[in-house]
Design a protein around this nucleic acid. Structure first.
Length: 199
DNA sequence: TCCGTGATTTCC
DNA sequence: GAAATCACGGAC
């Protein structure tokens, strides 16, 4: 029997960029009645706040949607994109500093699990995450959505990084290497974990 | 590669 | 009000 624990507020006392890496290997849990859906994080992106053009809270933009980003570390931020897909983020930093880590891909925790969760939209579909999981405490299972650590270790040498996906509009910020993933993992989205071969 | 799809935000 | 925008994914 594996020993699992919840993440603590102590875990979050690090930069968003650091947390994007620390979250790799951790487990996202969502309760649906008696069932709990789980997935292990294998790909993340950091959104580093008011100076990050790719971040929804760039320039202190504060709307009904981005309100969750202004919560303290450990809150969730779930929003709808392209009219069809939900994206799940973990808020970082202190209250009022709008930074977050986007969870981009999950893999099955148990070998016999079938989990289709490569990409932020698919991931939310797989765990049935939606708007009602927005602005929840991820450190408390009573929220219905939380994070766990089962001791699975991801070493620094297993982590690769690159530019974030789908943020071309963000000018210079689009090139920042704020996307982190487990090197060569089959469930990293769009097989962008392989460097593009030249012809 | 191209485009569906609709909430959110921004532009008058 | 109306128009533009968009942290995507799947069909070609």
């Amino acid at each position: 029997m594996r020993m699992t624990s919840l993440l603590t507020s102590r875990f979050f006392s690090a930069s968003t960029k650091k947390l994007a890496q620390k979250l790799l290997g951790k487990i996202v849990c969502v309760r649906h009645g008696k069932k709990v859906l789980r997935g292990r994080i294998v790909e993340t992106e950091a959104y580093i706040g008011v100076k990050d053009k790719a971040c929804h809270a760039f320039g202190h933009r504060r709307t009904k949607r981005t309100e969750s980003l202004y919560q303290p570390a450990g809150f969730s931020y779930v929003y709808l994109i392209y009219g069809m897909y939900y994206c799940f983020n973990v808020v970082t930093c202190s209250k009022g500093d709008p930074q977050a880590v986007l969870i981009r891909a999950l893999t099955a925790v148990d070998n016999d699990d079938e989990l289709l969760a490569q990409g932020p939209g698919k991931l939310c579909r797989a765990l049935r995450i939606n708007k009602r999981h927005d602005q929840k405490h991820l450190l408390d299972p009573r929220s219905g959505i939380w994070l766990e650590d089962d001791g699975y270790q991801v070493s620094q040498s297993q982590i690769d990084k690159g530019p974030r996906i789908g943020v071309d509009y963000a000018e210079e910020a689009a090139k920042w290497p704020l996307r982190f993933y487990i090197k060569g993992h089959p469930d990293v989205s769009r097989s962008k974990n392989k460097s593009k071969p030249k012809t």
